[in-house]
């Protein structure tokens, strides 16, 4: 076996020990298990975490080392799949994109399920009403006429009109931050409107009028009260309220 070459990177003495600074946090998780009790309650853990850890890492530590019954959804753990949207210190965030060091660690970190959707267990909610609204706006390309022999061309300017709304990962952070959605579950919600916007303003799509008609409903865009909670909750930085306003305008002028 060959001898390992000396490291080319100069490490200072205090790093060489492999010590990463740690700090203690109190994590409070809103628990709910319908098989045990109809009442939700808070459970609390003291954890020693690293400066590079996220809220998701703290939840993992609890689940893997303290209480395996703590339930939450996560898949990619890197802000792409949109599974772990939850209410962290009263605001909708992705647990995998929220660093513990950015929160106030002198106080307990509160983690709750997103609001407005039925809680199934702990931090897991039933996403079906959310996806139902999403399906209703027909989130796929609809084109009239014959299929072209080559690709459907689009200018950079045409692409730019809906660029912002292509970023959605369907995590439901926006819809479940909306005060209108909390009290009126029939409201389409910001996420469905964002995904409608993505096709309404796509020059290659021909069903914009149909989607505008769907959203020109009592439970459509007119329910929006511009509280901007959705724009502040979106982990992808989509200007959600702006997109909803553009759809409102398009309905009024019937011009896309």
């Amino acid at each position: 076996m060959e001898k390992e070459p000396a490291s080319k990177v100069e490490l200072s003495k205090d790093v060489a020990g492999g010590e990463i600074p740690t700090f203690d946090v109190t994590l409070k998780v809103r628990r709910y298990n319908p098989e045990v009790s109809d009442e939700a309650h808070w459970d609390e853990w003291q954890l020693t975490m690293y400066g590079t850890d996220r809220v998701l890492d703290a939840l993992h530590k609890v689940k893997w080392e303290h209480d395996g019954s703590v339930s939450f959804r996560r898949s990619c753990a890197h802000g792409v799949c949109g599974s772990d949207a939850m209410r962290i210190n009263g605001r909708n965030r992705l647990a995998c994109k929220t660093l513990l060091k950015d929160l106030d660690t002198s106080k307990p970190i509160l983690v709750e399920p997103i609001k407005g959707l039925p809680v199934e267990k702990d931090l897991i909610v039933d996403m079906e009403p959310f996806f139902q609204s999403y399906r209703e706006i027909m989130p796929f390309l609809i084109s009239k006429g014959h299929e072209p022999a080559k690709e459907r061309l689009q200018s950079a300017e045409e692409r730019d009109r809906y660029d912002d709304t292509t970023k959605c990962i369907l995590c439901a952070a926006c819809t479940s931050s909306c005060p209108v959605f909390w009290t009126d579950g029939q409201y389409f919600g910001p996420a469905a409107i964002v995904n409608a916007h993505r096709f309404i303003f796509d020059s290659r799509d021909d069903a914009g009028d149909m989607r505008l008609e769907i959203l020109n409903d009592k439970e459509g865009v007119w329910r929006c009260r511009t509280t901007f909670n959705c724009s502040e909750a979106c982990p992808r930085g989509i200007q959600v309220t702006k997109a909803i306003s553009e759809v409102k305008q398009a309905i009024l002028t019937r011009k896309v």
């Binding site: 409070k28 809103r30 009442e39 939700a40 309650h41 808070w42 459970d43 609390e44 853990w45 003291q46 954890l47 020693t48 080392e65 303290h66 209480d67 209410r87 210190n89 009263g90 605001r91 509160l110 709750e112 609001k115 931050s177 005060p179 009260r225 511009t226 509280t227 901007f228 909670n229 502040e232 309220t241």
Partner: peptide, 26 residues
């Protein structure tokens, strides 16, 4: 590692911490 499991007496969830937009709406 110290593990303290306590059941909090406050069952209510937190108030959503919206910003200017939410409070101007209220």
């Amino acid at each position: 590692m110290p593990k303290t499991l306590t059941k909090s007496l406050t069952p209510a969830g937190t108030l959503y911490r919206g910003r200017e937009g939410q409070w101007s709406w209220v």
